[in-house]
């Protein structure tokens, strides 16, 4: 008893001290924890925060000899050029539409998949299904896109199947209208199993007694899913949805540049692929940073909006 009282007193006295005094004290008490926390912190400082200083070249005319600090200032010239560009609206709307459809189709499917898996009785079959659906996640993007390109080519598997159904046997990726469908469908195929893990974990954390109670109340499977499982994993869903919306305009360039070609730029060229072409291929570093910065600002804005909305609606939010 005595010991607890003493340490409680000690804790209180520590809380009274100023922040900078508290740190060395706390350090002495919890060295191991601090050391462990240091790793992710270092990661964020080195790989996430330090590179942000490089954003300054969005306001400069970057030259290799001058480097980030020595290059001449350009003011807002890069921004003016981007907003006035012939491609500005196309890039923004392509990026937005692709992420929007990706969210609409890609977000619910892992949830539905997790719910379905949860209803399976045979655990061996369940394991087998899980393993098979995880597998595509571990295949490198280049290989996935190679497979996709092959399947949708003129004599490819998918094109041939579609031609049996009476569609013309043309390479799907030569028609701008098909790009989003191919992109999103292949994404769902690749990531469905992997993204469902977190929901399966959330479901398995639900209290079995609630299910028992529901059974007693006469609820069938469908009712249990609707009134027990879904509400139970709703906080998880909301948090993931917020994160997803925050990254909404953030479409990686890798898959895009592996799938697209100039004839379908109309629907396939997005901000990130444009940044890649500008920055890495045409070596217009400042301009490409400008476009990337613009994209990040929109992302931040979307994230804040989604978070606010979610806090208002159901008290679940990131901060």
């Amino acid at each position: 008893m005595d010991a607890i009282g003493e340490s409680g007193k000690k804790l209180k006295s520590i809380q009274d001290q100023s922040f900078f005094k508290r740190i060395p004290n706390d350090w002495r008490r919890n060295k191991g924890v601090y050391l462990l926390a240091m790793l992710p912190m270092l990661y964020y400082i080195i790989f996430r925060y330090t590179p942000m200083f490089g954003l300054v070249i969005a306001f400069k005319r970057f030259t290799p000899g001058g480097g980030i600090w020595g290059s001449p200032w350009a003011g807002l010239a890069n921004f003016k050029m981007f907003f006035g560009s012939y491609y500005f609206w196309r890039l923004v709307s392509n990026t937005f539409l692709l992420s929007f459809y990706n969210l609409i189709w890609g977000f619910p499917i892992p949830i539905i998949f997790a719910l379905l898996l949860n209803e399976l009785k045979s655990s061996r079959f369940k394991k087998a299904v899980q393993t098979i659906t995880y597998m595509p996640h571990f295949i490198s993007m280049v290989v996935i896109c190679g497979i996709v390109l092959n399947f949708v080519s003129q004599n490819g598997l998918i094109t041939s199947l579609l031609s049996y159904l009476g569609m013309p046997a043309n390479n799907l990726l030569l028609d701008a209208r098909n790009f989003r469908t191919v992109y999103i469908a292949s994404g769902i195929w690749q990531e469905m199993g992997w993204s469902s893990i977190i929901y399966i974990a959330a479901i398995s954390g639900l209290d079995q007694e609630i299910y028992d109670a529901a059974t007693v109340d006469g609820a069938g499977r469908w009712r249990k899913i609707l009134h027990v499982t879904l509400p139970g994993i709703l906080p998880t869903i909301v948090i993931l949805l917020i994160l997803r919306i925050g990254a909404m305009m953030n479409i990686g360039f890798e898959k895009i540049i592996l799938l697209y070609n100039p004839s379908i730029y109309d629907s396939a060229d997005v901000i990130s692929s444009f940044v890649y072409r500008k920055g890495i291929i045409q070596a217009d570093y400042s301009y490409s940073t400008t476009v990337g910065l613009f994209n990040s600002v929109i992302n931040l804005f979307l994230l804040i909006c989604a978070n606010m909305l979610s806090r208002k609606v159901n008290d679940t939010s990131l901060w």
Binding site: M81, Y86, Y87, P262, Y265, D266, R277, K278, Q282, D284
Partner: peptide, 16 residues
């Protein structure tokens, strides 16, 4: 470069 980066992208597209 500012002019031609835009023109060549458009040209590639129109050609295809």
């Amino acid at each position: 470069a500012n002019i031609m980066n835009e023109v060549t992208t458009l040209f590639d597209e129109i050609l295809f």
